[in-house]
Every structure is written in C-alpha cells, then in structure tokens.
C-alpha cells in the first residue's frame, strides 16, 4: 500500500516537473515589451508603471544591455529597444525608428579623500590611456592612479570612449578602445561606485544620477556635472537614452506608449527622476 502511494506521488511530482519545462512565459499579446540598456531600465520601469495606471496596458521591461537592446529592436523580439548611447544608422535594419527619451550625464568620479577638484578632457583621456599613472601628473598628490572601467559593450563605456576620444585606429587598422588593458573592470554602475568609494587612489565614471556622498564627482574643463549644466549642454559628457521602435512588430499599444513617452506628462516624470528631458 505504502509503496504504491509513494510511486503515484513520485510520478505525479515528475510530471509536474516535466510540464513545468514546457510552459514558457508566453508574452501577453496586449503587453508592450521593452528591453535593452540597464541604465535606461530604471527610468523605463517608473514610466511603465505610470502608463499602466492610465491605460491598463502592461509594460514588460528587461535590462539586457544596450547592444542587446539594439539587437532586440532589429530582430523584433521586443517592441521597443533601449540604448544608453548614440545608435549609428548602420546598426539598425530598415523600418526601425529611433527617438530620444532623455539625456543623462556621465560623471567622472574619484574617492572623497582625493584633493583633485577638476580635470580637463585631455587629462581624463591621458589617465584612461594609462599615460598618466600618478595623481601628481594631473595636479594631485603623489599617489598612484587606480583605473576603474566597465565591460566593453556597456553603453556607458561606449559613450564615455566616444566623447573622451578614447578610441583609435591600431596598427592593424581596426578602431579599438584605447583604455588601458590593465584597468580594473567593474560589473555595473554600482560596482564602479563601490570600488571608487573604497579605494583612495581610484577613478571611475558613472551615470550622474548615481553620484552620492560616498564619492566625489570632478568638474570637466572647469564645468561641474549637474542637471543645469547638462540641460544647457555646457557639460560635455552627456549621452542620449535612445528608444528604437521595431517597425514590423509595432502594435497599437507600443505606438501609443511611445507617443506617451514623448509627451509633456512623461517628460516631466523624466525630469523628476533626475534626467534631462529630450526637448
């Protein structure tokens, strides 16, 4: 008796496990799927919730990275792709349209104990190329510099390289990053922040929205990174949050969501979240 009960239970449990594998999370036909840059995801989730309250349409947001966002828009696997860097025309297939959701500044950050208050673009570039390896070289104390960077496909890193001129043709004719190979690579904005906050020799770059009292942001070419200097475009290291709308997969809901994202109402939320509205 006991044995047969046991076998029925075991078979039942197994069939549950097996049926579980087959059940994929089929996307809601009416939902709007958004994927891409992890930097944009935070803002997009807030916007998606606001839109859900009004329209009852569910917005599914996935932070997969800028390159994956571009890929998703091209393949039509998401309705909307997100990128935290400029997207070149040849990166997109025809039919995919782009619009800028917001602008974000990238702050160059150092440890709170660092005496440096400001750097020039050329100095930051020299530091990241590994040419300046002591804070003394750029007007600071006689201490070695510890470089902290991001992984190569991160939108923040690509934008930072583009703006600071940290890309060059190498001897084999390829355009490659000139950030020193020995720089520490931190997995994400938060990890850069943590490393720089802890190490008195470190320098890093993070989204301006993430800067807080644990570290200090330095001025670039004499201009402090702030909402105002980004809004009037005097601060140099800014990048757009680009939305890509997959043409062939467009639905009524995704079009309505996109239109709303660029409306004054949504753009006010963008600014309340600490980013610069697109217009």
């Amino acid at each position: 008796m006991n044995k047969s009960v046991l076998s029925v239970l075991a078979a039942g449990a197994l069939s549950l496990v097996l049926s579980g594998c087959g059940e994929s999370s089929a996307p809601d036909a009416d939902a709007v799927s958004v994927s891409g840059s992890t930097s944009v995801t935070e803002l997009m989730e807030v916007l998606g919730e606001h839109w859900h309250k009004q329209s009852k349409v569910i917005v599914e947001v996935q932070g997969t990275g800028s390159s994956a966002g571009i890929h998703a828009a091209n393949q039509g696997t998401s309705h909307i792709g997100m990128s935290s860097r400029e997207v070149a025309g040849d990166e997109l297939v025809s039919g995919v349209t782009t619009s800028v959701l917001a602008y974000d500044g990238i702050a160059v950050v150092v440890n709170s104990s660092n005496t440096i208050a400001g750097l020039s673009t050329a100095q930051v570039a020299a530091i990241y190329r590994g040419e300046a390896s002591n804070w003394q070289d750029v007007g600071g104390e006689d201490l070695p510099i510890v470089l902290v960077t991001r992984d190569p496909a991160s939108g923040t890193r690509v934008a930072f390289e583009d703006i600071m001129g940290l890309k060059a043709e190498d001897e084999r004719g390829n355009i490659v990053s000139t950030i020193a190979r020995t720089a520490q690579v931190a997995p994400g904005n938060g990890a850069v922040k943590m490393t720089v906050a802890q190490n008195s020799h470190a320098i890093g770059y993070i989204s301006l929205g993430s800067v807080d009292g644990s570290l200090k942001s330095v001025s670039i070419d004499g201009i402090e990174a702030s909402m105002d200097t980004i809004a009037d475009k005097s601060y140099k290291i800014i990048r757009p949050f680009v939305l890509m709308h997959a043409g062939q997969e467009a639905s009524k809901n995704s079009e309505a969501f996109l239109t709303w994202l660029l409306s004054d109402e949504a753009q006010n939320i963008v600014s309340a979240e600490g980013y610069i509205p697109a217009n």
Partner: peptide
C-alpha cells in the same frame, strides 16, 4: 580575469560575434 568572470561580466551586453 578568469574564464568564468569573462562570461559573466560580458554576457548581458554582448551580441553577435562577441
């Protein structure tokens, strides 16, 4: 960097040949 770290660090952002 180890082999495992290489995959985990870059997987989220990589596409195509990368």
């Amino acid at each position: 960097r180890t082999l495992t770290a290489n995959i985990a660090l870059e997987m989220a952002y990589a596409s195509g040949l990368h």
